[in-house]
Design a protein around this nucleic acid. Structure first.
Length: 153
DNA sequence: GCCAACGTTGGC
DNA sequence: GCCAACGTTGGC
């Protein structure tokens, strides 16, 4: 089993939204590195941290589980969708997504500044300079340490 | 294949 | 809203 961190702007889609709907297709990803991770590395049963970006309290807010293999993101073919990609060929779709399901909302946010100031996260991709990927791999140790910091029972 | 121009991400 | 740090595009 692998561990991931997945970013979302809560004004677009938040941990509360995921808790309400239960399962969500993680659509709209338009980055080849992430597309390749979805295709080659994501497996059903993998765990992922839900991260709120571009908001008041930036940080890790909960946990999810991967509940589908990668498959074509339908929003790339929808001219009315903001993620529409006219260059993507339906016979050979350019963009993929995976589905994720709600596992837990943390009782407190494990903030970005907290992760930055903790030496245990020195090699966490999220806090490394210049890393802007919206989906990042994570070690089991980092996953478990963040879980402990969240104070979840 | 190079690289300038442009677009996006995301913290602050 | 600013802007650094990327990624992508497209002319050559």
């Amino acid at each position: 089993m692998r561990y991931w961190l997945m970013k979302s702007e809560p004004s677009e889609f938040s941990i509360d939204d995921l808790q309400r709907v239960g399962t969500e297709p993680w659509d709209g990803v338009r980055n080849y590195q992430v597309r390749n991770m979805f295709r080659d590395e994501f497996k059903v049963g993998d765990r992922a941290l839900f991260y709120h970006s571009n908001c008041q309290e930036i940080g890790v807010v909960g946990e999810m589980v991967v509940t589908s293999e990668a498959y074509p993101d339908p929003t790339q073919f929808d001219p009315h969708d903001t993620h529409y990609d006219p260059k993507s060929d339906p016979a050979n779709p350019r963009w993929l997504l995976v589905e994720v399901s709600f596992v837990a909302k943390y009782p407190r946010v494990v903030t970005l500044s907290e992760l930055r100031s903790d030496k245990r996260f020195a090699d966490l991709a999220l806090v490394r300079k210049g890393n802007r990927l919206s989906v990042l791999p994570l070690s089991k140790t980092h996953f478990q340490t963040i879980r402990q910091l969240s104070k979840i029972k």
